[in-house]
């Protein structure tokens, strides 16, 4: 029994493989969330607060699904495309869901206890978050990194943690639980997400897609899964990196613009009402 998914020379089969390390980590995250929730829960919960556990639960489900068998196993040692699906789930689905699912009164005690205020204040700046996110993307998709880290359980665990961390970082200026981390301008938020997660990853995505050779020895020399060739697998991975983010990125941009426009319209209507209700000054004769 191994505790974390890593590269394997064992032929692929759909037989279940157990990774207790993943179960321990996921259980610890859920237990920690529940404990902090109970301890710091305010007297009355808002409707938004009551929805938070649902978002968190969905985030944990995605996180667990991306890490554990079968996707985690496939991504760690068999298919570059599965590796990319894992990455996209961590950074584009689990990351925002976990942030959405964390109320301010859960996040603030943790941030204070771990003395993360200073680090997070800098990390939440869109330029910093975007640069660090893309550096992690590039660093963790370099052939040397993948082949080295995926070969061992500890390396594979490190890679997964880096991805989860970069997913949280990416969304911190957009959906962070602490309001001071969320950038106030909807336009900046949209441009940031488009550049950091939509435009820049197209560069490595294109290189992976159009590379003449399989870049990763881990996947090139892995036992084949359903006769998918190493080249086809890598092309699928590259395409995923290039365009797999579109639904999430553009979905966020769409929702943000609709909310922005709605707020703007309501503000205009309120102003107009106020102007109509204000009596005109009397003319002096």
């Amino acid at each position: 029994m191994t505790w974390w998914c890593s590269a394997s020379t064992e032929p692929w089969s759909w037989g279940f493989r157990a990774y207790p390390g993943i179960w321990v980590l996921m259980t610890a995250l859920i237990v920690g969330y529940v404990a902090i929730w109970r301890r710091h829960r305010p007297q009355t919960l808002t409707a938004a607060d009551r929805r938070k556990p649902l978002w968190f639960g969905l985030g944990m489900a995605v996180l667990w699904g991306a890490t554990d068998w079968p996707l985690g196993t496939l991504g760690a040692g068999y298919l570059a495309s599965a590796h990319m699906v894992q990455y996209m789930l961590y950074t584009l689905v689990a990351g925002p869901l976990l942030l959405l699912g964390t109320p301010e009164w859960v996040a603030r005690p943790v941030v204070t206890r771990l003395r993360l205020e200073g680090v997070l204040r800098i990390a939440a700046k869109p330029l910093v978050a975007g640069v660090v996110f893309n550096l992690i993307l590039l660093g963790t998709h370099a052939p040397f990194t993948v082949d080295t880290f995926r070969a061992s359980q500890f390396g594979s665990f490190t890679l997964d943690m880096l991805w989860i961390g970069s997913g949280l970082l990416l969304w911190l200026p957009l959906l962070g639980p602490l309001p001071e981390h969320v950038h106030p301008s909807p336009a900046v938020r949209c441009i940031y997400l488009f550049l950091a997660s939509g435009a820049l990853p197209m560069v490595p995505g294109g290189i992976i897609t159009f590379s003449s050779f399989p870049l990763y020895a881990t996947y090139e020399l892995a036992p084949r899964v359903h006769d998918i060739s190493a080249t086809t697998d890598q092309q699928a991975a590259g395409i995923l990196m290039k365009i797999g983010n579109i639904p999430i990125v553009w979905g966020y941009i769409f929702v943000t613009f609709v909310r922005w426009a709605t707020t703007d319209r309501q503000a205009s209507a309120t102003t107009a009402r106020q102007q109509r209700s204000t009596p005109e000054p009397l003319a002096r004769h």
Binding site: L127, G130, V131, N134, L135, L138, G139, H141, A142, P143, F144, L195, A199, L200, V203, P204, I207, I208, S211, L215
Partner: peptide, 13 residues
């Protein structure tokens, strides 16, 4: 950032 991304991507990949 875009330039550095491109350069690093070409170097690494």
């Amino acid at each position: 950032v875009a330039f550095v991304t491109l350069a690093v991507a070409v170097l690494l990949l």
